[in-house]
């Protein structure tokens, strides 16, 4: 056990910049959003400091077309669709990233550096430009349609403004965030463990399943979080590639702060989104801690 430290020693002072930044950029803004979500909407946007839980009630209950208050799942449908899309993107990214990361880890030192550099290269270009380039690739007479025609495959027309296009865009945008942590965890993998598995007559598949994948799980989990969370708030891809036909959480929140002039509802939806992400991460974190505890006790 460490010795007792004075409450305001150099340690605390030295870390002060971090605390101040956390306070100003995280805690205060979230506090403001929570405050707005419990306030009353102003007639033309904005809000008044009159406490109410109406915004949260409005997420579930709305006035029907005849004026009575009824249960309306419209926002839950949007939340569900967004979760589904984020999960699908995460799953596809995971499936594609593991082989890529593994392949990179097997290369020579120089090639490794070059390949990792290539993975991060898209980040040097603005997100909006990259998404626009997919409009050209997937659109009418785009590269994809032309290539399929040249191969003698049937004309699929334009992929643009479909759910497929949206998913392609999201996977493309976020896959580097999955590759990098998985690569880092594979790099730390001790080759002796793989050899040991083979020595004990573990087949290639068994080695992958029982040795490599469990040891890379932390990297995969980190990657999954890095992809899943920004996907929940994606606005660009659903609008530009999906055609904006089905609302996502991001669009819904934008609508509330914009055309709907209902800031408290927008804030309430943001809080629900944030809370669900936090609950998800906490549950994952707790189960990871419990697992480690069990293994340590063994």
């Amino acid at each position: 056990m460490s010795a007792r430290r004075p409450l305001f020693g150099w340690n605390v002072l030295g870390l002060m910049p971090a605390h101040v930044i956390m306070l100003l950029t995280l805690i205060v803004p979230v506090g403001i959003i929570i405050l707005v979500s419990f306030s009353t909407r102003g007639p033309y946007g904005g809000f008044d400091y009159i406490f109410t839980i109406a915004p949260y009630r409005q997420i579930l209950f709305n006035e029907g077309w005849t004026g009575e208050l009824e249960f309306n799942p419209q926002y839950l449908i949007v939340v569900g669709r967004t979760l589904l899309l984020a999960l699908a993107t995460t799953a596809i990214c995971l499936a594609c990233s593991f082989p890529v990361a593994y392949f990179i880890s097997l290369q020579s030192r120089e090639r490794k550096v070059a390949l990792i550099y290539l993975v991060t290269l898209p980040f040097w270009v603005s997100m909006i430009v990259r998404v626009y380039s997919w409009i050209i690739i997937l659109g009418n007479n785009g590269v994809v349609a032309k290539a399929l025609l040249a191969l003698g495959l049937p004309d699929i027309g334009s992929l643009l403004f479909t759910d497929t296009a949206m998913l392609i865009g999201l996977v493309y945008s976020y896959i580097p965030l999955m590759i990098l942590p998985i690569f880092a965890s594979i790099e730390k993998l001790d080759p002796a463990l793989v050899e040991a598995s083979h020595d004990l007559y573990g087949s290639r598949f068994t080695t992958l399943r029982r040795v490599i994948l469990p040891l890379c799980a932390p990297g995969m989990l980190a990657g999954a979080i890095l992809v899943f969370v920004p996907c929940l708030g994606a606005v660009l891809e659903p609008t530009l590639l999906g055609g904006g036909k089905a609302m996502m959480m991001g669009n819904l929140i934008q609508l509330q702060f914009g055309a709907a002039r209902n800031w408290p509802l927008g804030a309430a939806i943001s809080i629900v989104l944030m809370a669900s992400v936090l609950i998800f991460l906490t549950v994952r974190g707790l189960s990871a801690v419990r697992r480690e505890g069990r293994e340590a006790a063994r």
């Binding site: 419209q74 449908i77 949007v78 904006g244 089905a246 609302m247 609508l255 709907a260």
Partner: peptide, 9 residues
């Protein structure tokens, strides 16, 4: 807003 939300829900 209600019309637009229900249109795109």
């Amino acid at each position: 807003t209600k019309v637009w939300t229900q249109l795109l829900q």
